[in-house]
Amino acid sequence: MSLQKKLESVLSETSAAFGVTVKHLDTNEEARINSDQYFQMASTFKVPILATLFRDVVEGRLSLETRIRLTEDDLVSGSGVLKEFLPGAEVAVKDLATLMIIVSDNLGTDKVLELVGIERVDAFMKELGLAHISIQNSCWDLLSIGGGLAGEKKGREGFDKLNEVFQTTGIDSDSAIFQPTLENNVSTPDDMCKLLALIASGELVSQEACDGILDVMKRQQLRNRIPYLLPDKTIIACKSGTIGSVVNDVGIVYLPEGKGAFAIAAFSHGNESMKAGERIIAQLTRTAYDHFVGE
């Protein structure tokens, strides 16, 4: 059975809308399902941010060693640990970027985004030929709009207001952020997979930049999707994302016995629960893994 048919069989088990691109990076064998449709990226948009940061580091615009002082004005709700730090902590840019990826830290993300510039991240994707990756909102923007507090100023007061919303009503499923348009943080599975392939092959800016990006992504701590059903020692570089019924994961999976690697971009919305979406992504990844290793 072809990889395409195998993945379609997995998706027959869910009523959620999925977009998936899987590509073996050596043989170019691929499977694509709704791969040219736009999906809300959620926190997978942190991969383009990381890519832009390492581009700027290589070009000498930024240094990973620079320390950034965090204040209450930087507070962002949602995932991460930096929001729990006492005000005044000084954190290296490298550590902000690492936390942005490995625990999906929203505060760290928005600090890195301030350094590189949201318009420059979006422009860099276009320079790479990835016209279907659009980044228009910071984490704060995304969450405050989704929580019905569009325009709310970041800081302790806004942070507390948004946390109260999340504890009571949660994200508005009809919010504008879920519209699959270029005014939002959206991507097609195809373009995200292309970005991953550029990173995996060392073709994004320089080998040094790609090595740095992969080193961070391989330290991922959130492992309930792409990594979940894979053998324990499998090397994986990935980044997940969740908001509302959106459950995503994108990454590079390294196969055993010299069989290369494959990239996978799995986006979805309309999941009954986060666990349901996670289960499907894990099954998609294991199906691709078994196909490529010949099991």
Rank of each mutant, 00 (worst) to 15 (best):
M1A: 10
K6M: 08
T14M: 04
T14I: 08
T14R: 07
A16C: 11
G19K: 05
R32P: 03
I33L: 11
F39A: 05
M41Q: 03
A42E: 02
V47K: 02
L53R: 04
R55A: 03
S63K: 13
R67V: 10
R67D: 04
G80R: 07
K83Q: 15
F85Y: 15
L86D: 07
P87I: 13
L99N: 09
V103P: 01
N106P: 01
N106F: 04
T109I: 00
D110V: 04
L115C: 03
V116H: 09
I118F: 10
V121A: 07
D122E: 10
A123F: 08
E127T: 15
L130K: 07
I133P: 07
S134F: 00
S138I: 05
E157D: 15
S173N: 13
P180Y: 06
L182E: 08
I199Q: 06
A200L: 12
S201H: 15
E203A: 14
E208C: 08
G212H: 02
G212F: 01
I213F: 14
V216L: 12
L222H: 08
D232F: 11
T234W: 02
A237Y: 04
C238E: 14
S240Q: 11
S245W: 02
S245T: 15
N248W: 07
N248C: 09
V253T: 05
G258Y: 11
G260K: 13
G270F: 01
E272D: 15
S273C: 10
M274Q: 10
I281E: 03
Y289E: 00
V293N: 04
G294Q: 08
